[in-house]
Every structure is written in structure tokens, then in C-alpha cells.
Design a protein around this nucleic acid. Structure first.
Length: 438
DNA sequence: TTAGGGTTAG
């Protein structure tokens, strides 16, 4: 707070004296880093700020080695600049994603020596990477030992590690840890909600209901989040009837159903084919005076596209615009096609995300329009979002559609490029390209 | 980054 205040004082007085240089452009700096060889020095005279550094790290997210190199250069060569905790956390996330464990730990030690961390958030980041790369035990150990790295364990960090395990589908592991330590950390409603959600994520609603019963027995009252989680769980596991009955029960018992409840019901009913009922729930929501969100409209649009007709989806889209909602990337992604992509950028002032690109690239690849797919890929490279692992996998698969030898060569180049950018191709992808080339 | 709702996904 204080630092921000001082910073704003400095900038405003500089502006008053007309000395303020144009603000550095993260996109320009990122592109410069991307296009120059790895030993190049950073542009001099740049007024580095945590905000600028963070936005560059995010732009270089899908080019991990360059991102880390940038971080290290700034850390070592610029004596007067000290990275902020949030920049450290971003760099640690990138290093952990690339499985550079030595780098992760040296960054953590560096944070500690600068007395700016590590924080519980730092450990949550690393634990998440462990859990998502099939090492849940390492994630648990990290949590159990975090106090040795100057970071205390409390209920919040306990809930976080459980959530990390659950979100990476290691629910059994989470449940074990939960049973072992719930007494020590005095598990609260958040803890139980995390576990309920975990079982729901892997479609084991009976286990989720069991935990729900258990929390009540232990004197912890479920809240609206608990019920919304359960509701989503029923739909996710295909128990549409139970979902519907649960929804009715929630209303009957005056749980204070909210926009999340309605969005879940509209989406859940719709994707399982009950479009009429989904629309009825949506109308009922309006009657009850619960304001739909962009997510609610997106849910309805998706349902219309998939189970009704694109024309009706567009009607909902137009209605959304009429009511003053601002469609976001997700909205446009449902109504696929170049036309929509143009519209989102020109009229909507809404930048395509890598999901948008990936979807379009997949579409072109599948119908053999390899040049168009490659064109979009090029556009990505020079724009705000760099291709990610999915992009490469989709595009490389696309190179096999036409069974042409020149496509194989492109596939080979893409494979090399993805490795250079810090992605690990699946064995399948690798062998396929190799076979293709041979 | 202490929990729940919209991209495509089993």
C-alpha cells in the first residue's frame, strides 16, 4: 500500500514536470525477447516495475525457457531492481511446469534470502504442479514440510492442499489426508466443501453425500456453496433426475438459491437434452428476480447450439446484447466460425484466447484446410497469446490428415519448436512424426 | 490461491 502510494506520487510529479517517458509496452518487450537470441541483454533504461515484469512473464507463459531467462537476467544484471513476490511466484510456476526442480528450489531460497517469501501461495503453486504431473505424494510432503521453509501451516493452507489434490482428481489421497488431519486443523465448512467437490469431480456422488451427512453430524452446517456443488455433481455424473429433484428441494427449503444455482441447473439440464426444462428454469430465474450473469447466458447459448438450433442460440445472443451484457471470449467460442472471430475482435473489443485459436485450428485441421490452420497459428505467434501444448498437439495431428509428405516436414519443424519452447511432446506425438518423416 | 456456475472431453 505504502509502496504503491509512493510510486504514484513519483509518477504524478514526473508527469507534472513533463518528464514522464512513454510507458513501456509489455507486448513490444515480449516480442523483442522472443525474437532475440537467448544471450541478448535486456533493453536498457526500462523503468521496470512488478506490474510490467508480471505482464511480460504472462505473455511468455508458453515459452517457458525464455520467460525464465528474462526473469534471471533481471534478477542478476539489474542491481537496482528486486523482483516482487508475485513475479517470483510466476517464475516458480513456470519452472515447476517445466519440471525444473533445481530452479524451483533455488528460486524459493532466493525469495527467502530476500525476505519476501515463500508464502502459502508459493507452496500452493508448486503443490499444484506436483499433483497435476502425477506426484500427489510429493505435493502432500511439500505441505507437511512447508514450516521448514519459513511458512506456517494453518487451516487455510490445509484447505488449499486438499483442494489442489481434489482438482487434480487425487480425491482418495485428499480424503486420506483430510481424515488424518481434520482434527488438528479444525476442519471448517470450506474443508468439507472442498472434499464434497472432490468426490463430485470424479462422479462419486454417493461419497459426496456421505461427506455431506458427516459434516452435519459433526455440527458443521452446509451452506449454499455445498448445495451448489452437490447439484453440479449430480448433473456431471449424469444423474439428471436426482439433480432436478435436488434443485426442487433446494428451492423448497429456501436455501437462498442464487445465480450459480440457476446457471448450474440450466447448463446441467440442457446438456443432458432437457432443453425445454432448461429454458423454463431460465425464465423462472428472471421471474424470481435473480439476475443472470454472462455465464448464465453462455450456458444457455451452449445448450441451444448443441441441443436445439444455432438460430435460437443467436436469438439468445442478441437478447443478451439488447440487455446490455458484454459477451466474453466464451460466448463467442460457442458460435464458431471466422465470422464470429472477426466480430469478437472488431465489434466486441474482445481478444481471442488460445481456446478460440485452438478451436479454430482444430476445425480447419479436421477438414484438411492445413494452410488456414497454419495461418491462424502464425497469427498466434505474433499476437498476445502464444501457442500452448494443446495448440501444438492439435496442429501436429492436423498435419496427418492429408497424408502429404510436405505436411510431415512441417510436423517435424513444429515438434522441434515445441521442445524449444519447453513443452514435452507425448511419446505418441513423437513417434507419429518420426514415422511420418521416415 | 480458502469453496460453487459458461469453452471440449469420456
Amino acid at each position: 500500500m505504502n509502496r504503491l502510494f509512493i510510486k504514484s506520487l513519483c509518477t504524478s510529479s514526473a508527469a507534472a514536470a513533463n518528464l514522464k517517458p512513454p510507458p513501456p509496452d509489455p507486448a513490444a518487450i515480449s516480442n523483442l525477447i522472443l525474437s532475440s537470441p537467448i544471450q541478448s541483454p535486456l533493453p536498457s533504461n526500462t523503468p521496470w516495475t512488478p506490474h510490467l515484469v508480471n505482464s511480460i512473464l504472462k505473455r511468455l507463459w508458453n515459452h517457458g525457457p525464455k520467460a525464465l531467462h528474462f526473469f534471471h537476467l533481471l534478477d542478476r544484471r539489474h542491481r537496482n531492481y528486486i523482483h516482487s513476490p508475485s513475479s517470483f511466484n510466476l517464475a516458480i510456476d513456470i519452472a515447476a511446469r517445466l519440471h525444473l526442480h533445481t530452479t524451483v528450489w533455488s528460486l524459493i531460497r532466493r525469495m527467502r534470502s530476500l525476505r519476501i517469501g515463500p508464502s502459502p501461495k508459493t507452496f500452493a503453486i508448486v503443490a499444484e504442479r506436483f499433483a497435476s504431473s502425477g506426484k500427489p505424494d510429493k505435493a502432500v510432503n511439500l505441505f507437511l514440510n512447508m514450516h521448514e521453509h519459513g511458512c506456517s501451516q494453518d487451516l487455510a493452507s490445509f484447505n488449499t492442499i486438499l483442494d489442489v489434490l481434489c482438482k487434480s482428481k487425487r480425491v482418495e489421497k485428499a480424503y486420506e489426508l483430510f481424515k488424518d488431519l481434520r482434527g488438528r486443523f479444525s476442519a471448517d465448512v470450506v474443508t468439507y466443501n472442498v472434499i464434497v467437490n472432490g468426490w463430485c469431480l470424479i462422479k462419486r456422488t454417493p461419497k459426496a453425500l456421505e461427506v455431506l451427512k458427516e459434516m452435519v453430524e459433526r455440527g458443521i452446517s452446509p451452506n449454499l456453496t455445498t448445495y451448489n456443488t452437490m447439484l453440479k455433481g449430480f448433473f456431471r455424473s449424469g444423474q439428471v433426475r436426482q439433480g432436478w429433484e435436488f434443485f426442487l428441494e433446494m428451492k423448497k427449503r429456501n436455501c437462498g438459491v442464487d445465480v450459480v444455482t440457476y446457471t448450474t441447473a440450466v447448463h446441467g439440464l440442457g446438456v443432458s437434452g432437457e432443453v425445454k426444462r432448461a429454458k423454463k428454469v431460465f425464465d423462472e430465474m428472471l421471474r424470481e428476480g435473480v439476475l443472470p450473469s454472462v455465464a448464465t447466458y453462455n450456458a444457455l447459448i451452449q445448450v441451444m447450439c448443441k441441443k436445439d438450433s444455432v438460430e435460437n442460440a443467436v436469438l439468445v445472443f442478441e437478447e443478451m446484447l439488447r440487455k446490455g451484457y458484454e459477451p466474453n471470449v466464451t460466448t463467442y467460442n460457442f458460435t464458431r466460425g471466422e465470422e464470429m472471430m472477426r466480430r469478437m475482435e472488431e465489434e466486441g473489443g474482445c481478444e481471442a484466447s488460445f481456446q478460440t485459436y485452438n478451436m479454430m485450428i482444430r476445425y480447419y485441421s479436421e477438414c484438411g484446410e492445413v494452410e488456414k490452420a497454419l495461418g491462424l497459428f502464425e497469427r498466434m505467434g505474433s499476437g498476445g497469446c502464444l501457442p500452448n501444448l494443446d495448440t501444438y498437439n492439435i496442429l501436429i495431428s492436423g498435419m496427418f490428415v492429408r497424408k502429404r509428405s510436405e505436411d510431415m516436414v512441417v510436423a517435424g519443424k513444429l515438434l522441434l519448436q515445441m521442445v524449444e519452447r519447453g513443452f514435452v511432446p507425448r511419446r505418441f506425438t513423437f513417434n507419429r512424426v518420426l514415422n511420418g518423416l521416415l
